[in-house]
């Protein structure tokens, strides 16, 4: 039933599979479902595949027309970056900053998300807007006063300083995502735990925390990729401790085409590895996982 049901949830007017439970409708639904999944996968992957072709092509091929549809495995563009001084330490800085951003945004953000979902308090609306403001104002404009502050306090050119800025960008995600997930957990569940002798804290630990693991994971993914892909603050606030993104992306726009693609590709890979590593935690413990 679950496969057929998908066909029906596509908002096209089509025969309701439950109304006419003939096998052919069912298999037609299944066909539609599978081809939908395949199509959407292709929609995501094909552009990435093009990026890969251009990365693994010689400069002549990148500029040629018609374009090839299979990479020729020319490693010239990639080896150029391999010889780039400081790539490894830039990579290390990027990972460090992204990691700190992840931890800080969750540790600081999640309690606020819980408060927003469970309590009515004065100033709640204002608080929520403040959180959102941070995402609605462009960082390159804020970078100047932040840089002045950092230079004065000695945070300038440290991984922590940059991570603090990136955390500001990631916090709206962590607060709002945890808020929406806490709101999705019936408060009765917690109350039941209280009546069974749990304190608010232990109830939270034993009942709620496992449930919002997917939300934590989602926030972590956002924090990581936001930090990973952020160029401007990284370029302004790090000098010797450059992140990989500031190192590569900043100058990508003005570089020859084949290096643009190779640089873009190099940046994408670590982010993809990270998402791959945490993807399974995106599913909640009881909803889907029990099915």
């Amino acid at each position: 039933m679950s496969q057929a049901s998908m066909a029906a949830s596509v908002p096209d007017p089509q025969p309701d599979p439950d109304a006419t439970p003939a096998t052919n409708t069912r298999s037609a639904g299944r066909f539609l479902y599978v081809s939908g999944v395949v199509l959407l996968c292709a929609w995501v992957i094909v552009p990435i595949y093009f990026l890969m072709i251009n990365t693994l092509s010689s400069p002549e091929t990148v500029n040629s027309f018609p374009k090839p549809f299979f990479p020729e495995f020319d490693l010239g563009s990639l080896t150029f970056f391999a010889g780039f001084a400081g790539m490894l330490s830039a990579l290390k800085n990027s990972v460090l900053v992204a990691g700190m951003t992840m931890v800080m945004s969750i540790v600081i953000g999640a309690p606020a998300g819980y408060a927003l979902s469970r309590f009515e308090f004065r100033g709640k609306g204002t608080f929520r807007l403040l959180i959102l403001l941070t995402r609605a104002f462009p960082l390159p404009l804020l970078a100047l006063p932040l840089a002045v502050m950092f230079i004065r306090t000695g945070l300038d050119d440290t991984a922590l300083g940059l991570a603090l800025v990136h955390t500001t960008l990631a916090i709206p995600f962590s607060v709002l995502i945890t808020f929406s997930l806490f709101s999705g957990i019936p408060i009765e569940l917690e109350e039941a735990a209280w009546t069974l002798g749990c304190t608010r804290l232990t109830a939270f630990q034993k009942v709620v925390l496992p449930l919002i693991l997917p939300g934590i994971t989602a926030s972590a993914i956002f924090a990581f990729v936001i930090s990973w892909n952020e160029v401007f603050a990284a370029a302004v606030l790090t000098i010797e401790n450059r992140t990989l993104t500031a190192f590569l992306l900043q100058n990508l726009d003005t570089s020859p085409l084949h290096l643009k693609f190779a640089g873009g590709f190099i940046l994408v890979v670590p982010a993809l590895i990270f998402i791959f590593a945490v993807r399974k935690y995106l599913f909640a413990m009881w909803g889907i996982a029990n099915r």
């Binding site: 996968c41 992957i45 892909n229 994408v268 990270f274």
Partner: peptide, 15 residues
């Protein structure tokens, strides 16, 4: 499948 669908997350807007 979920992983494939989330791939674009890891790609910066410049890229």
């Amino acid at each position: 499948v979920l992983y494939i669908w989330t791939i674009p997350l890891g790609i910066s807007d410049l890229a």
